[in-house]
């Protein structure tokens, strides 16, 4: 032991732990980076949303809440938001239920289980843009297998214009989205189910509990934290849905499949209404942050 060591031995803590300033100094770079990456773009968007930046203008004039007023009065925004929420409300439960059923199916050992799991997960590793293109080809009225299969079933050639007719375009997007992202739910829930306490399950079985009772009383509570996070991630993804819609319909026909992300892209990067788009970004960011915080709180994850 040297003369310098007594402090360390005395407290049993690192030498810097007792010095508040030093601690802050260590944390400061990380906080700075987080603020720079996370908060600065948001604050910048807030500032831009109060201006009239558009086109290639390098500086704007302050126009107060004009962009927010315009946003509230813009029926196209609300329609796009409605469509996004509808898609979320239909796709999310479908992906969850299908993913869960598949995960439960693969809980027991089956022939070629690993191969099938790998095949099922495949769509989730494809780029969403590529997946959208694949589905555009699959749903092609002339060469796509989808219409041909329906034709075989109905017994006569059938021309369904999946990406042209408004009532079909929504389903086309839904099919593509569920196909690609059900595997994400599947793989997460497969891992969660594998960690359910086997002893509890065996005990319930010995006690004569039925399958549904076991599922709702033991399995579901056990996987709930993981399931909650998976649902949250997918809900956020679905709210931001862009790629599949862009590749399949570009928001058309008309605006019939325009989601909020498509709307933002068109307004921000095709029409160059920079400040108007920034106002929408700010509102959505606030709403989504509140929703996520509430969800995490409810799931007791962010304690």
């Amino acid at each position: 032991m040297t003369a310098a060591s007594p402090t360390y031995i005395k407290t049993g803590r690192p030498f810097w732990a007792g010095r508040r300033g030093t601690g802050i100094a260590f944390v400061a770079p990380a906080i700075f980076v987080m603020l720079l990456v996370g908060l600065f773009p948001f604050l910048w968007s807030v500032a831009v949303s109060f201006q009239d930046l558009a086109g290639a203008k390098q500086s704007g004039n302050w126009i107060g809440l004009a962009n927010y007023k315009k946003l509230i009065a813009d029926a196209r925004v609300w329609a796009a938001l409605g469509r996004t929420l509808l898609l979320l409300a239909v796709a999310l439960p479908l992906e969850l239920i299908l993913g869960l059923l598949l995960a439960m199916h693969f809980q027991i050992e089956r022939p070629l289980k690993r191969l099938f799991v790998a095949l099922i997960v495949l769509p989730a590793v494809i780029s969403p843009m590529v997946a959208g293109s694949i589905w555009r080809l699959m749903l092609d009225h002339k060469f796509g297998p989808f219409n041909q299969i329906i034709g075989w079933i109905t017994g006569e050639p059938i021309v369904l214009l999946w990406v042209i007719k408004p009532h079909l375009a929504f389903w086309a997007i839904l099919i593509a989205e569920v196909w690609q992202w059900t595997p994400f739910m599947f793989i997460i829930l497969l891992a969660a189910l594998a960690n359910v306490d086997r002893e509890q399950l065996e005990a319930a079985e010995i006690d004569g509990a039925g399958r549904f009772r076991v599922f709702f009383r033991i399995v579901l509570p056990a996987i709930m934290p993981v399931l909650g996070i998976a649902v949250l991630i997918r809900a956020l993804d679905l709210f931001r849905i862009f790629d599949a819609v862009w590749q399949l319909t570009r928001g058309g026909p008309g605006n019939k499949t325009e989601t909020i992300s498509i709307f933002m892209y068109i307004r921000g990067f095709q029409s160059f209404e920079t400040s108007y788009t920034a106002a929408l970004v700010v509102i959505l960011l606030i709403v989504l942050s509140l929703a996520v915080t509430l969800a995490l709180k409810r799931m007791e994850i962010a304690r």
Partner: peptide, 10 residues
Amino acid sequence: RAVNAAIGGE
């Protein structure tokens, strides 16, 4: 978009 909507059935 309007033309495509009409072609789509509107």
